[in-house]
Simulated assay, not measured.
Amino acid sequence: MAQSDDVYDETGVNDSQAYLNDDSQFADDGHTLQVKDGNGDRNIAGESNRDAGEEKTGAGGGEAMIGHGEFFDPDGDGIFSPFDTFNGFRALGYSIILSIFSAMVISTMSYPSLPSGHWLPDPFFRIHVKGLHKAKHGSDSGSFKRDGRFDEERFDEFWDSHTDAPHAEITPFQLYAAVAERRLAYDFYGIFAAIFEWLATWILFGYPSFHFDFKLAFEKIRKLIFGKDRITVDAADWRKLLADTLQKACSGGNVKKEDVKGLYNGMAFYAVMDSQADAGNEWAKSLKRKHEGNPRRYL
């Protein structure tokens, strides 16, 4: 796919280069557009090269959101129900209460995921895997594009801006700040969905190593309120002191970058399920048997 020469000036500069981050600048088949300069044709180095490579790999590519949902569709019919979601969360090691709550929340994606031409909602709140991209919400990290592709550059930008070097993991407080800072005005569902998703991620990967020193927190708070060195400060300062105290009482609970990336394309689900099955989780064993033969597990 090539653009005509009349969109370039005599210097060979494309006037539309400011819009290189727009998906519409690239061919539907994932190939780069061609531009002409004084030395002949050349490829625009940018998003399309990455997308084309991701499409070929499958994992983490154009089917990232589909892979994210396929874990909950072990029979491979392209649809999963709230009961399938419940089974999936139990196989990942979540409690019964959290699994029921998660199934209820995720079932809200049923209507947006309907195939084109379907207007009536599914009475059973089933979700169509290939339509998951239409359930994309606001106030998120921006790592999923509107068509369900995973954008690694946007994810890296989000991650690096909220973590400390070498940016290998994110702390619970950094994760809270990241979610809070990306809230959009009046986006009530998007904010709730972002909190739910990141909290579920933290419970899965961060909570097992998290420790809170109640004794240390109690002593520090007691000294702040009743100690001889207590000071009178305004409400904002008190909130900062309280946050610092709570942060010092926390240890562990960090989430690794690679684990989060694995959730975006769904590969981490299978690794956790296998681990849970090895640990004796009967839900994981059952779901693992249903997933046998699913080639996505080995990408």
Rank of each mutant, 00 (worst) to 15 (best):
Q3G: 06
Y8A: 07
G12P: 01
Q17N: 06
Q17R: 01
D22G: 01
D23R: 11
D28P: 02
G30K: 05
D37P: 07
D37I: 11
G40T: 11
I44C: 05
K56P: 02
T57F: 15
T57H: 13
G58I: 10
I66R: 03
E70H: 05
F72C: 03
D75Y: 09
S81D: 05
F89N: 15
S95M: 05
I96N: 08
I97F: 02
M104D: 08
S113K: 09
P115F: 06
H118S: 14
V129H: 04
V129Q: 00
G138S: 11
S141R: 07
G142E: 06
G148K: 00
F150D: 00
F158A: 08
S161T: 12
A165C: 01
I170W: 04
P172Y: 10
R183A: 13
A185R: 14
D187I: 09
Y189C: 08
F196Q: 13
A200T: 15
P208G: 11
E219Y: 11
I225M: 04
G227Y: 10
V233R: 07
A236F: 06
R239N: 13
K240A: 04
L242P: 00
T245Y: 11
K248E: 15
V255E: 00
K256G: 09
G266N: 03
M273S: 05
Q276I: 13
L287S: 08
R289S: 11
R296V: 07
